[in-house]
């Protein structure tokens, strides 16, 4: 639910100079532990959601390519639902309507299933980009269809999906902040709790947590870059 907005800072632009003498960086530092605790929840939520998204999205992608008529239509329409609805609505429905609790679990399901809908598209695209000739060649050496998918198509498709996966990771990471809507005490919610207490330190607090988010997305991207380098097929297009 949308938290009641308790205040609007009354003096405009009072904190435009956050580094000045009046700035409240001390307050931020004094509560660093509290914020870092929120950061831990943010990271845990991201990882849990990505894993759930992979567990559901990978098979969904396979079904969209190789599945039968009905299974494909079912998976595809679920995908349209999760991709077409704002994530804040999904989170609230999981928590208030489906009634999953605690909030962490509701947020995991919301972010995870929504991510699954996107990951299925990443995998579908990657599978389709592996040429049809690969399947024929695999069948020609005597592999069954399932074996061909498992040993020839999937290993190539997984490598090719790394760039899309990278993008998805940062999206989930940033969207964990929307669990604010159900009061989950992740990084953004904790910053809100803090600046409601100390209204002179609002800008300092929000900038500080923005920096934390930025460092997280930045370093995650670098790690995934390195991963991509490592798994690249020599001489191949990725």
């Amino acid at each position: 639910m949308i938290p009641a907005i308790p205040f609007v800072p009354s003096t405009p632009f009072v904190s435009l100079v956050p580094l000045g003498a009046l700035a409240d960086w001390g307050f931020v530092l004094g509560n660093a532990d509290y914020l870092v605790g929120g950061l831990a929840i943010t990271i845990a939520l991201t990882v849990a959601s990505i894993l759930l998204g992979f567990a559901a999205g990978f098979p969904a992608g396979l079904i969209e390519v190789y599945g039968g008529h009905y299974s494909e239509a079912f998976v595809a329409s679920l995908g349209v639902f999760f991709r077409g609805t704002p994530i804040v609505v999904i989170i609230i429905v999981m928590f208030f309507v489906v009634g999953i609790s605690p909030a962490f679990l509701a947020a995991t399901f919301a972010l995870g299933l929504r991510s699954a809908a996107y990951q299925s598209q990443i995998f579908r695209g990657a599978i389709e980009s592996v040429s049809g000739g690969q399947m024929e060649a695999a069948r020609a050496v005597g592999l069954s269809r399932l074996q061909a998918i498992r040993h020839v198509i999937v290993p190539q498709a997984l490598r090719r999906s790394i760039p899309g996966f990278q993008n998805e990771f940062t999206i989930v990471l940033k969207d964990t902040s929307i669990a604010f809507a159900i009061g989950l005490a992740e990084l953004l919610t904790r910053s809100y709790d803090l600046f409601v207490q100390r209204t002179t330190a609002v800008l300092e607090i929000v900038l500080f947590i923005s920096l934390l988010y930025f460092l997280l997305t930045f370093s995650t991207n670098r790690v995934l870059d390195a991963l991509r380098e490592r798994f690249v097929i020599p001489g191949g297009e990725g």
Partner: peptide, 19 residues
């Protein structure tokens, strides 16, 4: 690299743009 919600907070609560 930062959440949209955090950006809105900076503008609305942090800078007090609305007042």
């Amino acid at each position: 690299g930062t959440p949209l919600l955090a950006q809105l907070f900076v503008l609305y609560y942090g800078l007090g743009l609305s007042s």
